[in-house]
Amino acid sequence: MEYAAALIVLLCLVAFVVVWPLLRGEGSPAPDEGAREELEAAKEAKYREIRDAELDLQMGKLSSTDHRAIDRELRGEAIEILQRLDELERVTPGR
């Protein structure tokens, strides 16, 4: 009896929580929202790589020739990410 009553109460509570977004149509923000976060994360990661390479240069692990080549490549990749972010900004300005 205790088991059945508890099960009914718990399932009702769970149903309330999980059905709510279905009734309200929640979770349909603009599709760019997630993409923006991912691009921001990728941008941060790329900046970190550029900073790491700078630190390696300062610590003497990289020659300036190697650093120039690596830095150029990393900056190119970062520019690509920034361009994608700009594109997103143009599509949905002000977000």
Binding site: V14, V17, S28
Partner: peptide
Amino acid sequence: RREVVVSGRRAIYCLAGLMVG
């Protein structure tokens, strides 16, 4: 359907509540 995905995610939150209980 994003709202169904959100509902699935919320079910995981509920699962955590049930396990704590």
